[in-house]
Amino acid sequence: MCTVTFLPKGASSYILTSNRDETPKRAAHVPQAYEVHGKEVFFPKDPLAGGTWVATDKKQFTLCLLNGAFEKHHHKPPYKLSRGIMLLDFFKYSNVQRFVDQYDFGGIEPFTLILIEDKGNLSATELVWDENNLHVKSLDATQPHIWSSSTLYPEAVRAERRHWFKLWLETHDTFVQQEIIDFHKTGGKGDEWNDFVMNREGKVQTVSVTSIEKDSDYNMVYEDLLS
């Protein structure tokens, strides 16, 4: 939930890949199908809160969550509910606009939520909740994007990571799922604190990589980096 890339592959094809940076004690269940608000949704489950950081219904929507808004915030529990549950609550709604208009984000810790929608042509939306306001931004779904969590990476580091991604893009005319997964596992400069696969003295580290490719069908790859 802390490093995310989006790669477009055509009018309705894409690859979304996420590195989860978390305490290694907070392992997740491997992805499988769950019934969520009457819909079949595929995601790796966080056993602590029951939510997730990445999910797809393999029909129309793929969502990915990052902790934090624009800058690092002060952690002020208790919060109303887990951000990972909020992500799953999206599937109560028929479209992004209804979720934006009707969901009560008050009392939730700051987050950034990426929503990819396929209705024949791709659309992408970024929601940023800063504890007081919801910032809604339409993204260009024909262009690659990268995000890094503001709770772990200050702006200077986020900018450096955008540069690594830019260099990778310059050597890739076509996008292959395994190649972007490999980049998520090797990107960086040998800095354990800030590389794509990070480790901060075992307290917080990259515990998994999840990649969802939508082409003629959906393919979800999940790699547990701890085991």
Rank of each mutant, 00 (worst) to 15 (best):
E35R: 12
L226M: 10
D57I: 03
A69M: 05
P78W: 06
L167W: 15
R161D: 09
F6V: 03
P24H: 09
F196L: 11
T151M: 11
S18A: 15
C2S: 11
G51R: 06
D140M: 03
G10L: 03
H163P: 07
F43W: 08
G187M: 08
V221E: 12
K45T: 13
T56I: 13
T5G: 05
G188I: 05
R161H: 04
T52P: 00
K59W: 14
Q178I: 11
V4Y: 08
L134F: 02
Y153H: 10
V204H: 09
M220H: 13
G106S: 14
I116Y: 03
T52S: 14
V96C: 01
D215A: 14
F91I: 10
V157M: 07
L167M: 12
D57N: 13
Q178H: 12
D104A: 08
D57R: 08
V128L: 11
S149H: 00
S12F: 06
E223L: 11
V36I: 15
P31E: 04
E126C: 03
K92I: 01
A141L: 01
D217F: 11
F91C: 02
L87N: 02
I181Q: 01
K72A: 15
G188E: 01
Q143I: 07
I212F: 05
P144I: 04
G107D: 12
T171K: 15
E160D: 11
S216Y: 14
L139R: 00
H184S: 06
P77C: 10
T171V: 15
A124Y: 01
M86R: 09
P47I: 09
Q102C: 02
V157P: 02
P44K: 08
K58N: 10
T171R: 13
T171F: 13
E192H: 10
H37F: 13
D130N: 09
A11I: 07
H145V: 00
D118W: 00
S82M: 09
W53Q: 01
G51Q: 06
W147M: 03
F42K: 08
G120E: 04
V30E: 15
T17G: 09
P44W: 05
T151S: 12
V4W: 02
G187F: 00
K45G: 11
D89N: 11
P31D: 02
R158M: 11
R20Y: 12
L152K: 04
V4F: 05
D118G: 06
A55R: 03
K59S: 15
T125F: 00
H184M: 09
Y79E: 08
T23N: 13
L139T: 06
S216A: 13
W164E: 05
V4G: 02
P47N: 14
T23Y: 12
E126K: 04
V128K: 07
L16Q: 01
L7K: 01
T5Y: 00
N67Y: 04
T3H: 12
L48P: 06
Y153C: 03
S12L: 06
V204R: 06
